[in-house]
Design a protein around this nucleic acid. Structure first.
Length: 778
DNA sequence: TACTCCCAGATTTAA
DNA sequence: TCTGGGAGTA
């Protein structure tokens, strides 16, 4: 029981209480991941089959890391059979195998926010509803809220309160829109993010035999970040756990920061009500941060009314005070941060990867990128426009989606005339209207173009173009039956004219677009190789597409060994830690955001966000704010954030005391710490709005290849596998699944990523990544 | 049908 | 500042 050593009493209890409901309240930095990991290991060591364990985490990355760590205790194969992943990915997997119950194809498409928005725009157009009154985004947000609360179209229509509320909000057509949108998704064979949860609920409630099946399978359920579950997720967990009630939830109410997407803090606050017998364990010792940081964070969070009482403390060194910098502008702020990082890197031998810059909104990144680049400091921006959301990538993906699911109208309309092939809007509209009138999908019309041609009212030229296009798609589909996804995707990129079209654009942006497409293909190759080496791997195109739809930016930074400063929103930083944290843009209306300072609840969430940000810090935190900021193309004045004044002055040290005290706290009191002497900041930089920053083309500071790794649901790194030194071309090797073969080619210099081409006696030629393939030299 | 140009509007956080 | 949509032109 080695793994139990080194746990404190509370951790020990959390790990070893394995039967019955358990709630672990884990303060920031209290070793939560460790507890979860060891608990699973403990379950397995005590005879629970890994097959019976379900662990739901917040990111795929968290799941992967946990699996790796569990594997070290119980071994690879046991760790592999645990179902572990995000709600969305785990339930997408279940939905795929049970899709027929709901009338969906098992290879249904997953729509991301952008896809959903496009569908919504079409719906509004079709209904002839003014998109100015019904802003597509707003409408979607409302529908999303309904879905997350299990309010289906039918339930909505039968709920006078909701109808009335929407009527008051000048949205009386919402029901019709909702119905039409759901219908459109269904006909496209697609689910949006919320559907993955809603449909799972539907599956489990409508089909008791399915529920029973999964209840029996998942006898032990663990949920990480429970404070961030929404009602829909809550119900799924509750249903699955109701038979055995071996449910362990881990969370920290002080870190609930996702109410905007339906997270319901009461799920954790009311856990005791749901399970009166539940054991509660509080992990209160923070192993991550200095005392000063922990105390400051506690001081702020204690202002929230809504919370569990707990006493998070640190036994670490007291540590340095939080340093506060008052900047004159956003550029000045960024300059200070970059200078500070440079200075500490040199004088204290800190690695660049020790630093994080955390901000409230993605829009704030630009100034920091600028400043870091000027000093040649390597950095990586997380979040923002992720790789898979780039237009050129989505375009190729749309072709692939169409091959897998012909009903995916969203994909079809995206590429039917891209690259342009003379199938204009008028033609497309005729097709859509006709298909609708016949109650069939556009793809069906294209399937029988000759038959329907007379009724379409299109001239022969256009008909030919349509026929050619469809013949091309069909050819790809045929290819997919025999060739692997990568080969087909290559062919699609070439034959569709996509690559050629992009290559015609020789601007730096154009070139980077081509590179992105290439990178997508590479990542596909990697995905397939990886899947082929997993026991229950699935190298199909459909699996690849499903994976990228659910991948997040945090998940893509595989092996981010690099020496780089991390830039990200506070939301993304949850679960991470850094020796030095810069929390920037601490201004009223920015943080707390102007969108969420109206009610106490909203403000408390912003405060929790602040708490999360500060508790990412191990050693030293810096706060910065600017008195004016370049925003929306204008310079706007800003006031320091109220959160600054909520940190007791004893934890704070001012770097440049303010010229005037605009630093008031919002209970009306002047904060005593900011009334000092005036000073002139050294580095006031003129703003230069004309300066263009080429986004993706700056290879030095933004290496593309880091972003792109697809997420596999069960990537297991095998540390004991043969390393690159062991294997040479010409070696005879044995592989677990493929048997005996000979290495004919090695590719790659990065030891983490060497690929070997091996010809197996029975299985033929395979491309394997050495890291994963447990090749044994014979 | 395709492409360009101009103007308006938006910007929180994200699976 | 950046994006998207609409209008106008080739």
């Amino acid at each position: 029981m080695d793994y139990l050593k080194g746990l404190n009493d509370a951790q020990h209890e959390a790990v070893t209480t394995i039967e019955g409901p358990l709630m672990v309240l884990a303060g920031a930095g209290s070793g939560k991941t460790r507890v979860l990991t060891m608990r699973i290991a403990h379950l397995i060591t005590n005879g629970v089959s890994p097959f019976n364990i379900l662990a739901l985490t917040f990111t795929n990355k968290a799941a992967r890391e946990m699996k790796d760590r569990i594997a070290k205790v119980v071994g690879d194969s046991d760790a592999k059979s645990i179902w572990m992943g995000t709600f969305h990915s785990v339930f997408a997997r279940i939905l795929r195998s049970e899709a027929h119950y709901l009338g969906f194809p098992s290879n249904f498409t997953i729509y991301d926010t952008q896809d959903a928005l496009n569908v919504m725009k079409k719906v509004l157009k079709e209904l002839n509803i003014d998109a100015d009154l019904y802003k597509p985004k707003k409408v979607l947000a409302r529908i999303s809220a309904y879905k997350n609360n299990l309010i289906t179209v039918k339930a909505y229509m039968n709920n006078p309160e909701l109808l009335e509320a929407d009527e008051r909000a000048n949205m009386k057509h919402l029901g019709v829109i909702y119905a039409k949108y759901v219908d459109a998704c269904f006909r496209n064979g697609a689910m949006d993010f919320d559907d993955l949860l809603l449909r799972t609920n539907e599956l489990l409630t409508r089909f008791p035999e399915v529920l029973a099946k999964y209840q029996d399978r998942f006898r032990y359920i663990l949920v990480d970040e429970y404070q961030d579950t929404n009602h829909s997720q809550y119900l799924i967990v509750k249903a699955l756990a109701s038979k055995f009630e071996n449910i362990c939830v881990v969370g920290d109410d002080a870190q609930s920061i996702y109410s905007f997407r339906g997270a319901n803090i009461y799920n954790i606050l009311n856990f005791k009500k749901d399970y009166p017998d539940a054991v509660t364990v509080s992990l209160e010792q923070n192993y991550r941060s200095t005392q000063n940081i922990v105390d400051a964070a506690n001081a702020v969070i204690s202002r929230n009314v809504q919370q569990f009482k707990k006493n998070v403390f640190s036994d670490n060194e007291i540590g340095e005070k939080i340093k506060v910098y008052r900047a004159l502008s956003d550029a000045d702020e960024a300059g200070f941060v970059a200078g500070n990082i440079w200075e500490q890197h040199n004088s204290q031998q800190r690695k660049f990867s020790d630093f994080a810059i955390l901000y409230r909104t993605n829009a704030q990144t630009r100034a920091f990128e600028d400043a870091l680049r000027k000093k040649n400091i390597p950095y990586r921006v997380y979040g923002g426009l992720s790789f898979y959301q780039r237009k050129e990538v989505k375009d190729l993906v749309a072709y692939l989606r169409l091959l897998v699911n012909e009903n995916d109208n969203e994909a079809l309309t995206r590429i039917i005339n891209y690259p342009t092939r003379g199938i204009g809007e008028t033609t497309q509209n005729k097709l859509i209207v006709f298909a609708d009138s016949q109650g069939i999908s556009v793809s069906k019309v294209l399937d029988n173009l000759g038959f329907y041609a007379p009724q379409l009212g299109l001239n022969n030229g256009v008909l030919t173009k349509l026929a050619d296009f469809w013949a091309m798609i069909k050819a790809f589909e045929v290819m997919l039956k025999t060739d692997d996804a990568y080969t087909v995707a290559m062919e699609v990129a070439k034959r569709s004219g996509l690559i050629k079209f992009l290559k015609d654009d020789q601007t730096p942006e154009g070139i980077s677009r081509v590179e992105n497409v290439q990178e997508l293909l590479n990542s596909m190759r990697g995905f397939i190789d990886e899947q082929q080496q997993l026991e229950d791997g699935d190298p199909s195109l459909s699996n690849f597409l499903g994976n990228i739809a659910l991948s997040t930016d945090q998940d893509n930074n595989k092996d981010d060994d690099q020496e780089k400063v991390s830039l990200m929103t506070i939301h993304l930083s949850k679960g991470l830690e850094f020796p030095v944290v810069h929390l920037v843009g601490l201004e009223e209306n920015l943080f707390p955001s102007f969108m969420s300072s109206s009610t106490r609840e909203e403000l408390e969430e912003e405060r929790r966000l602040f708490y999360v940000a500060l508790t990412r810090t191990e050693k030293q935190a810096f706060f910065t704010y600017a008195v004016s900021r370049f925003q929306w193309g204008k310079i706007t004045d800003a006031e320091p954030s109220r959160f600054l004044s909520e940190v007791n002055s004893e934890y704070i040290e001012l770097i440049n005391p303010a010229t005037e005290s605009r630093f008031v706290n919002h209970s009306g009191l002047k904060s005593n710490i900011f009334d000092d002497e005036p000073s002139v900041p050294k580095s006031f930089r003129k703003l230069d709005p004309k300066k263009k920053i080429s986004k993706a083309s700056d290879a030095l500071s933004l290496p593309q290849s880091k972003n792109l790794k697809p997420v596999s649901t069960a990537k297991i790194i095998n540390p004991s596998g043969a390393s690159s030194q062991d294997i040479e071309v010409g070696d005879k090797v044995r592989h677990d699944r493929f048997g005996i073969g000979e290495v004919v080619f090695l590719d790659g210099t990065d030891p983490q990523n060497i690929k070997a081409k091996v010809i197996f006696q029975n299985e033929g030629e395979k491309n394997l990544i050495l890291k994963f393939a447990k090749l044994v030299k014979i």
